[in-house]
């Protein structure tokens, strides 16, 4: 899932302080699971904002959509946003942008910082696992991502900074390449990393689109 963290309250407060009616929009998918921007977090944030702006008379409305990354759900707000001066989104960066695209005349502000694609280690505890680089090498690396888990994103590690079994950046951070070695060694598959991995294709730095097989014609028709 996409993991996010709520922004510091003062930052949120300063974004909305010049408006009279603010709609806080939650998202019921990833950010709800990671306790950053679901309906419960919308409620909590609005309670804090109401308290902070009591004297200023700012009104805060609340709506939580199933997904802000889908126009179908954003359409549910079509009849509501006119009553507000600005929108405060608690979705991930994708959802916030899609909300802004749906309502281009309304200022849209982010109430969370989108952190990473990660996993649930425990309630309230998440770890990054994927950088969405678009060139998955997990087959070669025994299911441990060198792009995400190695602080230098090395494709031919481990570097000389391996500190026993941890990364040079911190003793709490395991060395990805140590883990890759252990995993492949245990599976008798070290041959996977005996070969040199060639330079990676980082052309993921331009905005990307995915059209699944079978949907090309439909997309073409929509664009024409």
């Amino acid at each position: 899932m996409i993991v996010a963290e709520r922004k510091p309250f003062d930052e949120i407060r300063s974004m909305v302080s010049n408006y009279k009616k603010v709609l806080t929009v939650g998202c019921g998918t990833c950010v709800a699971v990671c306790l950053a921007g679901g309906s419960k977090e919308v409620e909590t944030l609005n309670a804090e904002l109401n308290l902070a702006f009591k004297k200023d008379g700012i009104e805060f409305g609340a709506e939580t959509l199933q997904r802000q990354c889908d126009m179908e759900f954003l359409a549910e707000l079509d009849n509501k946003v006119d009553q507000y001066d600005c929108l405060l989104s608690m979705a991930c960066g994708a959802g916030i942008q899609f909300l802004a695209e749906r309502f281009p005349n309304k200022p849209v502000f982010p109430a969370v910082n989108t952190s990473f694609i990660g996993v649930n280690l425990d309630v309230g505890w998440y770890e990054e696992k994927c950088r969405a680089c678009g060139q998955c090498v997990l087959a070669m690396t025994g299911g441990v991502c060198p792009v995400t888990m190695c602080a230098k994103s090395l494709f031919n590690g481990p570097c000389g900074g391996t500190n026993k079994t941890s990364c040079e950046i911190h003793t709490d951070q395991p060395c990805a390449w140590f883990k890759i070695y252990e995993r492949l060694s245990g599976q008798g598959r070290l041959d996977q990393i005996m070969k040199i991995s060639p330079p990676n294709d980082w052309s993921n730095q331009k905005p990307r689109k995915v059209i699944q097989p079978g949907y090309e014609e439909r997309v073409k028709a929509m664009n024409s």
């Binding site: 994103s153 090395l154 494709f155 031919n156 590690g157 330079p199 980082w202």
Partner: peptide, 10 residues
């Protein structure tokens, strides 16, 4: 870290 040291050598 566009390249790693191995790829730089190459």
């Amino acid at each position: 870290f566009d390249l790693d040291s191995m790829q730089l050598i190459m």
